[in-house]
Simulated scan of single mutants.
Amino acid sequence: MSFSSESVEVFLAVIDHGSFSAAARALRRVPSAVSMAIAHLEAELDLQLFDRKGREPRPTAAARSLEPQARALAAQLRQLDAQALALTQGLEERLTLAIAPELLAAPWSGALAELAHEYPLLQVEVLAAPQADALALLHSGRAQLALVFERPSLDGREGFQEVGSDTMVAVMAPGHPVLAAAPGGRLREEHLIATRQIVVAGRDLVATMDPRSVFARHLWRTDNALAALSLITAGVGWGWLPRNFVRPHVAAGALVEIPLENLSNGLNLWVDVVWSRERPLGLGAQRFVALISRERQAAGVSVPIAS
């Protein structure tokens, strides 16, 4: 092979420092070793890389042509070395984040973007799954982190940190018959109980139902928030969805937050990033938690870790 990691390093050092002697000082070598390395490289490539007619060697057109790829290769080698070091220090080969679909619009991608900058070779997988399914992926080891709403009760197997909040609101299509039939256009809890409700739940339909969100006697279930949104917009029923998720549809007139007479329309829920206490977190997962927490702190809210 003509180019190697060593020859690329020497080649770029001579270009950057302008002479064999300056490159040798930068590489902590003797000038003759640098000069010999370049001569061997030129012989193997059958190309003149440096013009030696002047006082200092000058890169030839061939050298300038090879320079961009040499720099790209040097950068890749540095990334590879950094990745290998990180792996020895506990960086996972792959980081999987499971996210409740209603939270896909939440501010989590910025933390992943910064993580990608710090660990450019780390493989990342983002899975959208109903909350109960996301937590099941976490406990099975399929995912290292889950971004979900607060749970009705604490699970001793989980560590978590609050990273935001959202308000679940009851919504329905503005042309739904129950709105037209209600006195003053305002509904009471008996209207919600008697009207078909669209519920987002995991595929284990009974075990994954959050009792706080179930009002109606007649339920349609889906494991996808977009499917629920489509059904509600079509007038099939009403449902609880995050306000940030439905805001553009309310603004466009496709949905209304249901006007209620005897109770408030809004359930404030914290958003948590959750991990399993039964498995140690890798460097990537730890850093993601720190980065998404920093975003929350930047908003002026304290976020103590419940580990």
Rank of each mutant, 00 (worst) to 15 (best):
S32Y: 14
T96D: 01
R186Q: 12
R52N: 03
R151I: 01
R221E: 07
W238I: 09
V273P: 04
E261R: 14
F245M: 06
E257N: 03
P304W: 11
H176C: 07
F11A: 00
T208K: 02
L137W: 14
R221A: 14
M36A: 14
R279A: 07
L291H: 03
H117A: 15
K53Y: 13
A100E: 07
L103W: 02
R71T: 00
A82S: 07
P280W: 06
E44M: 12
A252E: 08
V303G: 08
A254C: 01
V126S: 08
A194G: 11
L260M: 14
A128M: 00
G235L: 02
A13N: 04
L127S: 04
R52S: 07
M209V: 01
E102W: 10
M36Q: 11
L115K: 04
V178S: 09
L95N: 12
L145E: 03
E278K: 02
L91C: 09
A72L: 11
Y119L: 01
S65Y: 13
H139I: 14
T222D: 08
L12S: 03
A132I: 04
R196L: 15
F11Y: 13
Q123G: 10
E114R: 12
A181S: 12
A37S: 11
R279N: 03
Q83R: 09
A23R: 03
R243K: 10
T233K: 10
P120F: 11
N265M: 05
L73C: 04
E67W: 04
E158F: 12
F245T: 01
P280Q: 07
D46G: 08
P242C: 04
D210N: 09
A86E: 09
E102H: 01
E118M: 10
L41S: 05
V126A: 12
Q89W: 04
P174S: 01
D81Y: 13
L80T: 15
M1P: 07
Q89N: 03
G184Q: 00
A75Y: 06
Q89E: 11
G141P: 08
R151D: 09
Q48I: 07
Q161S: 12
R217P: 03
L104V: 03
G239I: 09
L291I: 02
A170K: 12
V163Q: 05
Q131F: 00
P68E: 02
V303M: 14
L115A: 05
L138H: 02
A170H: 07
L187S: 01
V126P: 01
E42L: 00
I193R: 15
L135A: 00
S230K: 15
A113I: 14
I305D: 15
G54S: 04
H218D: 09
E9L: 11
E295F: 08
L291V: 00
L12T: 11
L135D: 03
F245W: 04
T60Q: 03
A116R: 15
T96Q: 04
A227K: 13
S21K: 10
G300L: 05
Q83F: 13
E162L: 08
